[in-house]
Computed example of a mutant assay.
Amino acid sequence: LIVSAKMNDVDPQAWFADVLARIAAHPVQRLGELLPWNWCNRNSQVNQAA
């Protein structure tokens, strides 16, 4: 997991902390959104919107 995050230019600690905080309430059908390569895109979109 850590290597996958690094390969996608994601801070592994930030990604893992965010995933652990959200996974309990996250729908099982959308677990793919929490993968590092998708998490990176989602967070950049949120940051651009702010």
Rank of each mutant, 00 (worst) to 15 (best):
L1P: 15
I2V: 15
I2F: 11
V3R: 12
S4A: 11
K6G: 04
M7R: 11
N8K: 08
N8G: 01
N8I: 00
N8S: 09
D9Y: 12
D9P: 05
V10I: 07
P12S: 09
P12W: 03
P12N: 07
Q13A: 15
A14D: 13
F16P: 00
F16C: 02
F16I: 12
A17M: 07
A17D: 12
D18R: 06
V19C: 10
V19T: 09
V19I: 06
L20A: 14
L20P: 09
L20N: 14
A21I: 02
A21F: 08
R22I: 04
I23W: 08
I23R: 15
I23A: 13
A24S: 11
A24L: 04
A24E: 04
A25G: 07
A25W: 03
A25T: 11
A25D: 13
H26Q: 07
P27F: 03
V28A: 14
Q29A: 15
R30W: 02
R30G: 04
G32D: 14
E33P: 00
L34A: 07
L34E: 03
L34T: 05
L35M: 09
W37G: 01
W37V: 12
W37A: 09
W37Y: 06
N38Y: 02
N38S: 09
W39N: 02
C40W: 02
C40G: 07
N41Q: 14
R42N: 04
N43C: 03
S44R: 10
S44T: 11
S44N: 07
Q45F: 09
V46H: 01
Q48Y: 13
A49L: 14
A49I: 08
A49F: 13
A49T: 11
